[in-house]
Design a protein around this nucleic acid. Structure first.
Length: 687
DNA sequence: TTAGGGTTAG
């Protein structure tokens, strides 16, 4: 062994010592400088260690310089270190080039060479390259090495080659915990949680001591399965007994599991019990609150994270928070986030930009959403799907479908979510032929098995067009018993077309499947009311009372400056209520002068006409419209959000208001956007 | 010197 000449004996690795005292980049550089000053040339092993440690500190340039100055020719250890330094700094393509140089210089790769290269193939999704390297490792008899094998299983799994990974695993005679975990994690990461839990069970039966990593992957599988009580509960107990729970990764996996099962209080409690919380743990909590919790709470968590832990949000934090803003539908808040994102240089992060695009689309500003979409350099299937869905929801059906065609022309393969957007667009536009064609194309050309959402879209599309027999045929052809969503869509179509008989049939199915959902009772009562079958209406309403079910309360909001003002139907609690009703009265008079006739048939109670008109005139969206007109500057669009579907009368009224006030009205309801300008709505009147 | 893990846009 060569002796290292150095004035400070603690600064350099000494023979026999296990841990070098290179704890910072500056200490490494200092030692390196001393080595260079020394009259004797350093050994290859010492340079290789320097290269590795430079890589770990993220200084790839110094690693390359150290390598270049090493005794020539470099050996395998030196090349391995240089490859590793590049891989751990995400310079994957460069690592392949170094491997090529290694071969060109006649240096034989060894068991240490391949794991980092397979990792590079995993991260850079380079399956072809991975397969070639697999062949190289086999040729050299290295594939049986446990480190190489585990890296290979991981490489195949990360590239979505589940069967390849399994074959690799099955071919191994000795299987350690890391090899098992690579398989288990791979199944979980590929959306196969059942298989992942099976592997976990097999692993335990095989007597392998389960470690923290295996537990994390099994918990992740439970999150996907939303399986909290059997496997999930057992894993939490195991994590507690073994002490793994103290690890931030294990704690985060448990937070995620509780939240994904809808147990937000348990998730928050788990989060509170974690001693150390890193950025991923915070992001996990924020993401779930943004999706399922009160949107403002998600925003508060985002602020709290930065204050209390002094953590800097990354792209995931923002992409996770933005759905909360999208749910609020607040354009102002969306713009603030946009500014924050630009200041923090997330303007080219496609995750963040796609999430922001969705915020603008859901806040009613499709123009900015489209600009953001056009500005994304590498648009993937997710950004295309988001834009297509946005256009469809805004009634820009032709634009949605032409975007879809363009996406196909560019060779982007659509997935099941893309087709949900495409089929919904067809529903919004009443494009029956196109819908049928896309549904078949999805199955036959893209081998996508229709999901519940696809079937629901099709039933909705056919039902709205009055093609009840075709809709029923489709339902009969479904592989499993139709769930409530399907009958709900059919019932909605029955209301539009006054099909009492089929509506009643669908309602009976729904009352069996979801007896406590008030929405379906209301829908049936609406079907009877539209047919003037008032005794049936009373019977259904009576049934609702007996069951203690109440119609969900409708509310609308309008954004004025930085504030959101909400109104219930007939609401008089707003501080400016007098002004709201006075201005609404003006609007109704002006609208009537230009031809607006209240559509009293929309009111479903068996009451006198004047009562119906008074009920109609205080619908929450009308109150919000009047307040917006009163308070927003002249020419500014009025943006309204409604929690339920807008009724036909309010839709018609909004068209007259847009004409008499010369304002654009953008109304987001539970299913779509209505862009109304000069008396015309971009979405069809196809109800 | 080398392998497997938690969050993340539609």
């Amino acid at each position: 062994m060569e002796t290292v000449l150095c004035s400070d004996p603690t600064a350099l690795p000494q023979p026999g010592t296990t841990k070098p005292s290179w704890e910072s980049l500056s200490s490494v550089k200092q030692s390196h400088a001393q080595i260079l000053k020394s009259p004797r040339r350093p050994s290859r092993d010492l340079v290789a260690k320097l290269v590795a440690v430079y890589g770990k500190f993220g200084d790839v340039s110094s690693a390359v310089r150290a390598f270049a100055a090493s005794p020539w020719p470099p050996d395998a250890f030196l090349f391995n270190s240089l490859i590793q330094a590049h891989v751990c700094n995400s310079l994957f393509l460069r690592s392949f080039i170094i491997y090529r140089e290694m071969l060109d210089n006649g240096v034989a790769p060894n068991r240490y060479t391949f794991p980092p290269l397979f990792k590079a193939c995993s991260c850079a999704t380079q399956l072809t390259c991975g397969k070639q390297l697999h062949a190289h490792s086999t040729k050299r008899g290295l594939t049986g090495d446990p480190f190489v094998a585990a890296a290979l299983v991981d490489m195949y799994m990360k590239n979505g080659e589940v069967n390849g990974a399994r074959r690799m695993f099955d071919g191994m005679k000795t299987r350690d915990v890391v090899l098992w975990s690579a398989l288990l994690a791979g199944y979980s990461q590929n959306g196969l949680p059942q298989e992942a839990l099976q592997v976990y069970e097999q692993m335990r039966r095989a007597g392998v001591a389960v470690d923290n990593v295996a537990v994390v992957s099994a918990i992740a599988a439970c999150s996907q399965l939303q399986e909290l009580h059997l496997a999930g509960g057992g894993l939490h107990s195991l994590a507690l007994k073994s002490g793994f729970v103290a690890e931030v990764v294990v704690g985060t996996a448990l937070v995620d599991m509780y939240a994904s099962c809808g147990e937000l209080p348990a998730a928050k409690q788990m989060f509170g019990e974690m001693h150390h919380k890193d950025l991923v743990a915070w992001n996990c909590l924020i993401n779930w609150w943004a999706e399922k919790g009160p949107p403002l709470e998600a925003f508060k968590l985002f602020v709290e994270m930065q204050r209390s832990r002094r953590l800097k949000p990354n792209g995931s934090s923002l992409a996770g928070l933005l759905p909360a803003i999208a749910r609020c539908g607040s354009l102002q808040l969306g713009k603030s986030c946009h500014g924050f994102m630009l200041r923090r240089n997330f303007g080219s992060d496609e995750f963040v930009v796609t999430a922001l695009m969705d915020v603008y689309a859901k806040s009613g500003d499709l123009v900015v959403a489209r600009k953001l979409f056009d500005g994304i350099c590498s648009r993937n299937v997710i950004s295309w799907s988001a834009m297509i869905a946005g256009c469809g929801a805004h009634g820009r059906v032709e634009e949605a479908l032409s975007l879809f065609d363009e996406m196909l022309r560019r060779g982007i393969r659509p997935n099941h979510i893309t087709y949900i957007g495409v089929l919904s667009a067809c529903v919004h536009g009443g494009f029956v032929d196109e819908g049928r064609r896309y549904f078949l194309q999805m199955i036959e050309h893209h081998s996508i098995t229709p999901s519940l959402q696809h079937y629901t879209c099709m039933v909705d599309l056919l039902g709205r067009a009055g093609l009840f027999e075709e809709a029923r045929e489709l339902i009969r052809g479904m592989p499993a018993e139709p769930p409530p969503e399907i009958w709900g869509a059919l019932m909605g179509a029955c209301r539009i077309h006054g099909n009492v008989k089929l509506g009643k049939y669908a309602a009976e199915k729904l009352f069996e499947l979801k007896p406590a959902d008030p929405g379906f009772y209301v829908l049936l009562s609406n079907i009877y009311a539209a047919a003037h079958m008032w005794s049936e209406v009373r019977r259904v309403r009576g049934l609702m009372r007996e069951l203690g079910l109440r119609k969900p309360v409708g509310w609308s909001s309008v954004e004025i400056g930085c504030r959101i003002h909400s109104f219930l139907s007939g609401d008089k609690s707003h501080p400016d209520s007098d002004e709201v009703y006075e201005r609404l009265g003006e609007l109704i008079s002006k609208a009537k002068e230009t031809g607006y006739v209240p559509r009293k048939e929309v009111v479903l109670h068996d009451v006198e006409d004047d009562v119906k008109e008074s009920v109609l005139s205080s619908h929450s969206e009308k109150l919000a419209m009047a307040y917006g007109w009163s308070r927003l500057m002249s020419g500014k669009p009025i943006r309204i959000m409604k929690n339920l579907r807008t009724c036909e009368d309010c839709h018609s009224f909004a068209k007259f208001v847009s004409t008499v006030t010369h304002r654009e009205i953008i109304l987001r309801d539970a299913v779509r956007f209505h862009h109304i300008k000069d008396g015309i709505c971009t979405c069809s009147d196809y109800w």
